[in-house]
Amino acid sequence: MTSYTMSNRVKAKSLLIHAVMIVCCILFIFPFLWMALTSFKTPQEIFQWPPRMFPKEWSFSNYQEVLTAVPLLRMLLNSLFVAVAVTAGTLVFSSLAAYSFARLRFKGKDLLFSMYLGTMMVPLMVTLIPTFVIMRKLGMVDTYYALIVPGFFGNAFGTFLLRQFFMTIPRQLDEAARIDGCGYFGIYSRILLPLMKPALASLFIFTFMGVWNDFLWPLVVIQTESVKTITLGLASFQGLYTTKYHLLMAAAMISVLPVVVAYISSQRYFIEGITLTGLKG
């Protein structure tokens, strides 16, 4: 009897949780759904009141119009190119520096490391103007270099994160490899890096997402349409077509869809990567 009421209570509780979570999910998914549905509607349908959920006729003409007005596909490729370049550079150079901080002894190491930690607190706005001036002096403003070079050598956060992971690998592995005649670079590349795969994957996702979604820096250094990233491109598109929501939703779709596809196909790594980065960082 008691076990019967108990299981009924448990059932009621889990039903309630499901109900709350389903409402939550609608709250988080619906805006994207509404964007998708709007992007297939004609301008007349946009102005219809009351609004209809589904388009009367599914039309791709908004997409055609958007893509002839602004080279959004080119901008997607720009984002991909810039994000891949910066992420690759960050993984290589931050992991090398992290290995050095975690394993090698040299003068001034502690001082350098506390300097790294100190810079992590400085807001981007502080370094933005001088970095812009430096890029101008180097003649890199309004080129891919401006988007890639400042992040290419890795950053304090990435180095710090990977150092924390290197510290968790037992030093006996290094020593065994040394006895077998492995040099410092060999220990780094052949022994330790393969063990760092989860950490590297986390940093990969974190950096890639950061660069892909970055807006302020591209806004400051890029004017030419063909060099713009998708985030910047969408913002300038919005500046031109402020209230043409059928076109805006099509443009937003183009910017969101690749990310959503990547997310759905690997959401576990996404979420675990971010969690891991958060817990260690």
Binding site: T119, V126, T127, T131, F153, A156
Partner: peptide, 22 residues
């Protein structure tokens, strides 16, 4: 020597794009 060498590119980037700008 290896310590400095491995840290050099990362440190260079930090110096030029973070420390000097600060």
């Amino acid at each position: 020597a290896y310590g400095y060498l491995f840290i050099a590119p990362n440190l260079l980037g930090m110096l030029v794009f973070v420390i000097v700008p600060i």
